Amino acid sequence: MAQRLKPKNDFLFKRLFGETESKNLLISLLNAILHPADDKKIIDVTVIDNKELVKEVIDGKSGRLDVRCETEDNEQIDLEVQIERDHAMDKRTLFYLSKLFVGSIKEGHDYDLLKKTITINILDFNYLPLDHFHNTFHLYDDGNKEFMLTDIFEIHFLECLKFRAMQHDLNNPLHRWLLFLDEKVTEQQLEELMTMDSTIKTAEERLQRLSCDEETLRLYEAREEAFIEYNSGMSAARRAGLREGIEIGEKNGEKKGIQKGIQQGKQDGKAEGKQEVARNMLALGLDIEAIVKCTGLTIDELDKLK
């Protein structure tokens, strides 16, 4: 198989699923992720198509390229692929979900017009301390986990590394899509996926067409280079932090060593002073018990001094 572009590159992912002409691919992917009942399946969506991908976003290390749409039921969905590890994905997700939710009505309108907001994160790293690769979150009561306050918020985390490590079921549409998105998929697996699922065949054909488009390829490579620069910068920062930590540790260790030496010296000096006083008192023939009370030395220690 010729070199296949990475579908999880967020720019390429947006070109694959985030345009009106490819909304049938997006609908299929969303139904696989959300797994609604047959009578609730997404039939149509309106893609919020933003083609103004400025250079700062493509070349930026933190530019956000997401796929947004609204369903026929006025539910708004935000779908994002995250390749680089973000230790605040929970807060990041809630931030963007809140912005979408609040922005779904105009000021002064009735709260009943607020739209159900769903955010989906496809992560190329492990994030949650949970075993399952797909986890969904709602608002439940702490005391009664069966009671949901409202389903107006819904958050999905899909962790690709956990999925890759498990047994795959090609009869499961979500498994088929995640295998399609995996840059490590083999030619044989891809052929099997396309034979089983005509929508994935369409997606692979679109991926190949985009791979031949010079402008798409240029922006794809620019995005890949931005990730490489980001990783390189993070590695350099970690190395610099490690060196600085070692230097600070050594200085602190040296300082503590000096302080400990001074303290030990004081203690030794006090001990020697007590012994000298005890010797003088012994030489004067003073009572042993009196010397013990005066110096704090034990009778055994006084015997050694004799």
Rank of each mutant, 00 (worst) to 15 (best):
C69M: 02
D142R: 15
E52R: 14
K41R: 15
D73A: 08
E75M: 06
R164W: 00
D141E: 11
V67W: 10
C69L: 12
Y127T: 02
P173W: 01
R92Y: 06
E52I: 13
T71I: 06
D38N: 09
D66S: 05
L158S: 01
K91W: 03
L170E: 09
D151S: 14
N171T: 00
K55Q: 10
K116L: 07
I58Y: 05
H168K: 15
D73F: 04
N144L: 06
E154Y: 06
V57H: 14
M89F: 00
E52W: 08
R64S: 12
N172A: 00
E70K: 14
L130P: 02
H138N: 12
F153M: 14
D38R: 07
Y127C: 02
K51N: 13
Q82I: 01
D66A: 05
E159N: 02
D131C: 13
F133C: 01
H134V: 10
Y111Q: 12
R164V: 03
V81I: 08
S62Y: 11
K115C: 09
I118L: 04
H134S: 12
G60E: 12
I155P: 01
S98Q: 11
Y111W: 03
L97D: 13
G143D: 06
D39F: 04
N50L: 14
S98E: 08
I42K: 07
G108C: 01
F101S: 09
V47G: 03
D124Y: 15
N50W: 10
L174S: 10
K145Q: 05
E52F: 05
L97F: 06
D86M: 03
C160P: 00
I48S: 14
G108S: 03
N74W: 11
V47T: 00
D38M: 11
I118R: 00
D66M: 08
V47N: 12
F163I: 05
Y96I: 04
L174R: 01
D151V: 02
D90W: 14
F153L: 08
I77W: 06
R92T: 10
T93G: 02
E80S: 07
K40C: 11
I83A: 07
E80V: 11
D151M: 11
V45F: 14
L94M: 05
D169Q: 05
T93P: 04
I77Y: 03
M148R: 15
I58N: 06
I122Q: 00
I77T: 00
R92I: 03
T119A: 12
E80Q: 04
L100H: 09
D59P: 00
F180T: 00
E159R: 03
E107Y: 06
E75R: 01
V54C: 12
L161D: 10
M148Q: 13
F125M: 05
L179G: 02
T117M: 03
Y111E: 13
